[in-house]
Design a protein around this nucleic acid. Sequence first.
DNA 1: AGCACGCCGACT
DNA 2: GTCGGCGTGCTC
Length: 677
Amino acid sequence: MRIAEVAMPVPLEKAFDYEVPPALAASVAPGSRVRGPFGPRTLVGFVLSVRDGEPTRELKPLAKAMDPEPLLTAEQMALARWLAVRYCAPIGECVRSLVPPSLRSAMRPVFLPKAGPLPEPPEAPPAGFELTAGQSASFKRLDALLEARRYAAALIHGVPASGKTEVYLRLLRRAARGGGQALFLVPEIALTKPFFAEFSAGMGLPVALWHSGVGAKAKREAWLGLRAGSVRVVVGARSAALLPFKDLRLVVVDEEQDESYKEDDNAPYYHARDVVMERAKTAGALVVLGSATPSLESYSLAVPGGPVELLRMDERVAKGTPPPVVRVLARRGLERDCLSPELLAAVKERLQLREQVILLVNRRGYSNFVMCQGCSWVARCPTCAVAFVHHKGAAADLQDLFAGPAGYSLLCHHCGKDEPVPAVCGRCGKGPLKFSGVGTQKVVEELRSKLPGARVLRMDGDSTAGEKATEAGVWGAFRDGKADILVGTKLVAKGYHFPRVTLVGVVDADTMLSMPDFRAAERTVQMLVQAAGRAGRADKAGLVILQTAQPAHYAIQSVARGDYAGYAREELGLRRDLRYPPAASLARLLFLGKTEKATRAAGEAVAEALRAGSSDPDAVLGPAPGVHSKFEDWWRWHVLVKAADPAKLAEAVAAAKAVPLPSGVRVKVNVDPYDMF
DNA sequence: AGCACGCCGACT
DNA sequence: GTCGGCGTGCTC
Ligand SMILES: [Zn+2]
Ligand SMILES: [Zn+2]
């Protein structure tokens, strides 16, 4: 009997065997879209493999082959299997993620177009462009790697405005010659209409656009065109990493540290950078990663003799421009005002020059950390090294245990450790301790009183649906010069540039360093370097003034010295000691339930089972309530599992999935997560 | 995830 | 006496 192994679009680990009726045998192959009975209903799934043999159980026959040819390529089927293993995700969901919804379950057959005549990109770059020495050296090296037509990966570590984009453009154009295909990954936030228009014009041949907002028809056209090889260049956000290619030769990942490349909401929880590197290996293509602040994931691979080649671009294109300056203002945290006299003076000076200022303030809510105002010690979990969060008795039963004077306690959101609030500093034994950071409201009030007459806009950026419109209004008003100072929670906004901003003030770097997340320092460094790159103009150096009570912190020191390599070395050492990515593999098992009791019980049961069955119980952390302990009526608790490598992690995750959960509780498994809240 | 089957409460 | 609540279990 001919048997087809079929992945159905359900969140189940396994695939299902079906009998292939002789009439369908000719059109059922790996990658074929097929319809078959599934319990009481019928579903459209994808064939993983076909074999002849004796069934070990009674099989139902497939009802139909949907298309004349397999919709998915062999490479895509292999990719689906890789996704399922790498991210501990159900195979059906992995296959599903590779097909746009309009093609996934279409009842009409999908005909694959044949590639027509292929337009060639213009050989010569547009005139009037002289590359800098740094651009030229990077381009030459990368072009040689591209010409070799073998798998290779390179990381361009280039200061902001070093002209990485021009290097990408020339490489992409080269890759698209002779039938080749190229993928340009761009962070969601940078993928604007003007950007796409300029990029398409620069390429000199049709470019497909791919992101979540692209309509069904355009997606279908792009997907089929790439599959056939007639579409040669595609620019897209995260999900473009999952597109089909006929002859992939180059992938460029711009701003490779950008967290929008990680799918953190739905299975498969993939990282686009990992996906394109895997695909480039099979296709024999070149991957170029670019960043001013490389992720530790990439940077740790870009060592001499390592799998990624490091290229540096330290020189800015506009050579006359003075480099941005980062000034560290040490504060003790005792001050009543949140804006130091030095910062205020700098703001005043910029306003007199009719320039603009952005003051960055962290979002509040999860930023209630505990810091000593005497010695700047921060209360951190001894096992996780993550800042404790100062909680107003979250769970009633916890409150009973640790009813301090005011019913507060310290909670580690990684492992769930719960401690009474200390009376004195854990380092100097004195104090006083302070319990919260600064909010935008307070900064605005202070500006009003100390700089009367300055036009101030405030942006809290909770980015809820209702606030999207007002948010755009604020960014627009600031760009149009309707205010001098923007007090906000983020530095970049989709489609906005602020050439008149010459000063970025980071009001409270300590809050960012003390976010309850093992990546807090990495994010702080990236934000500060990006801020420095964004402030300033062609004729004027940008200035970043950051206020911190921890001027000696390794992250702050590295930024002040402009020593990213030093920072990365230090951080990587810590990640190794504490077994966090990229030095180890990490899974976040997020439990979602309608009642807190059941949700927590699920976490407890799984954590207990994992610890009992493991020779390394310290590798299991939690359960702990999420930083967002409840979202849209769902309670959230999580368990973290660490492992030396992905294979060991997969074993632990499999064991976790075998634990029966209380009814009404779901679990989401996120491997190497970025979202820890 | 769906979808059916199951066994207890309050309706015509 | 049935209609329907959603707990539990299975899907080749
Ligand atoms: Zn102290
Ligand atoms: Zn902890």
